[in-house]
Computed example of a mutant assay.
Amino acid sequence: MIDVILKKGKEKAAMLHHPWIFSGAIDKIKGKPENGEIVKVCSGASEFLAYAYYNAESRVALRLMEWNESKTIDKSWYQLKLRDAIASRQHLLNENTNTCRLVFSEADFLPGLIVDKYADFLSLQILSSGMENAKQELIEILIEELNPRGIFDKSDAGARKHENLEATQGLLWGETPPEFIEVKENGITYHINIADGQKSGFYCDQRDNRDILAAYSKDKNVLDCFCYSGGFTLNSLKQGAAHVTSVDSSALAIETLKHNLELNGLEASRQESIQSDVNKQLRVFKEEGKKFDVIVLDPPKYAPSRSALDRAARAYKDLNRLGMLLLEKGGILATFSCSGAVDMETFKQIIAWAALDAGREVQILKQFHQPEDHPVRVSFPEGEYLKGLLLRVL
């Protein structure tokens, strides 16, 4: 195995079990490892630190995965890690919920691997060259452990470019998923489209937050922005919302939402779907003098990296300012950021700026987080990407 020697003073992150080592921390490499090859990471004194995937094309040149030198990274190692990850989520699956994230990359010591369960199908995302090399072994293990009807490749994320990998999508094993897979979450039925849907097919990271927000929706007039397939909309209607207006720019999202309303027997008279750019639509509502009791703002990732933070902060501030202006006095705003570069304290500051510009006083009632099938390792705080605030706007 090829040794990668770190510069003096750059060992600390590895010793603290942070899984990323950037290229600038490398002093020398004893050989020429291929991208995705497993290497031995050592200190300047040639002391073992960890085993890692190597990639010369990526800023994150080393993705650390095992800190015990006596371990061997082989199929048995992958099987043990997958078994541990799957077992830790079993209690989340029941007659009311048959979808969740089974593997969450670095959080489960499998850097660059995401596996989502949708009823009897699995969606696989591979975002690192090391996991790409292990793909066939991973598929074999998933078949053995879970016996799914099919495994679908959803490795079309832009992050693969950083590893010099091309986007891929398609059937990996078993049955081709139907146009709509029927899943249940918190007792609500969804038809989701893996092939054409966003992300890996469904935003299961909002499972807990949808349930929390729904409790504030009874008899209320709700606005669900960036509604996608209707998670917040359906939960609010189920909990007795008087009316929900759902906005998304995607025609497929609106079509899927309408389908999911019918699937759950929810009255169409209590819901309106609008295909439009959310920011433009919020301005239209403002011009019309519309007001809402509850507003959900769950936008896409505005800050894919720290270099985009300033621009993203302005976008989040303007979005939340518009939302606050559309709320009745004492109304509820559930606002989210899925940008890992925006931490909770920064997000709170953005909300404070938005409140100042809107001329509204705002109280924080709760903080939203990603659910337990998206765990955060204390040695890898970057894994905490989803954050949100439940606000009362006065």
Score class of each variant (00 low, 15 high):
140 E>Q: 06
311 R>Q: 04
218 K>M: 10
133 N>E: 00
152 F>I: 09
372 E>T: 11
185 E>M: 15
11 E>H: 04
315 A>V: 04
11 E>S: 04
347 F>K: 01
113 L>Y: 15
58 S>P: 13
337 S>W: 07
222 V>T: 00
54 Y>A: 03
265 G>C: 14
303 A>T: 09
18 H>T: 08
267 E>V: 10
312 A>N: 03
134 A>L: 02
290 K>A: 14
383 G>M: 00
381 P>A: 08
250 S>W: 02
237 L>T: 14
100 C>L: 07
207 R>K: 04
303 A>G: 11
175 E>M: 09
113 L>D: 15
238 K>W: 07
282 L>S: 14
377 R>L: 15
110 L>Q: 09
316 Y>N: 08
252 L>M: 13
306 R>G: 08
59 R>H: 12
205 D>P: 01
261 L>H: 07
394 L>I: 11
141 I>T: 12
352 A>K: 12
77 W>N: 02
61 A>R: 09
26 I>H: 03
284 V>N: 07
277 D>R: 01
271 Q>I: 10
36 G>N: 11
257 L>S: 03
376 V>E: 08
381 P>E: 10
341 A>W: 01
282 L>I: 13
178 P>T: 05
268 A>V: 14
127 L>F: 05
164 N>D: 15
127 L>D: 12
210 R>H: 12
247 V>A: 08
12 K>M: 02
250 S>E: 10
305 S>D: 15
329 K>L: 08
249 S>E: 12
237 L>E: 15
52 A>S: 15
349 Q>C: 05
110 L>V: 11
210 R>K: 06
337 S>E: 07
86 I>C: 04
9 G>V: 10
44 G>S: 12
93 L>P: 14
356 L>P: 02
236 S>G: 05
209 N>G: 05
196 D>Y: 01
379 S>W: 11
381 P>V: 09
211 D>M: 01
95 E>T: 13
156 D>M: 01
113 L>Q: 14
62 L>K: 06
139 I>A: 13
62 L>I: 11
292 F>K: 08
293 D>T: 13
337 S>I: 06
171 L>C: 08
210 R>Q: 11
65 M>A: 12
273 S>L: 07
240 G>H: 04
28 K>G: 09
270 R>Q: 03
253 A>V: 06
53 Y>R: 02
40 K>D: 11
4 V>I: 13
35 N>I: 03
97 T>Y: 02
53 Y>Q: 07
264 N>A: 12
201 G>M: 05
346 T>H: 00
127 L>T: 13
75 K>Y: 13
20 W>T: 11
201 G>Y: 04
107 A>L: 05
371 P>R: 03
344 M>L: 10
48 F>G: 00
27 D>Y: 05
186 N>K: 00
239 Q>S: 10
84 D>Q: 01
290 K>Q: 14
291 K>Q: 15
46 S>T: 10
218 K>W: 05
114 I>P: 13
382 E>L: 03
163 E>A: 04
28 K>H: 11
242 A>S: 13
369 H>E: 13
189 T>P: 07
200 S>K: 00
350 I>Q: 03
179 E>M: 10
376 V>P: 04
1 M>R: 01
135 K>W: 04
247 V>H: 02
313 A>G: 11
247 V>S: 09
326 L>D: 14
6 L>D: 15
128 S>V: 05
272 E>P: 03
368 F>D: 14
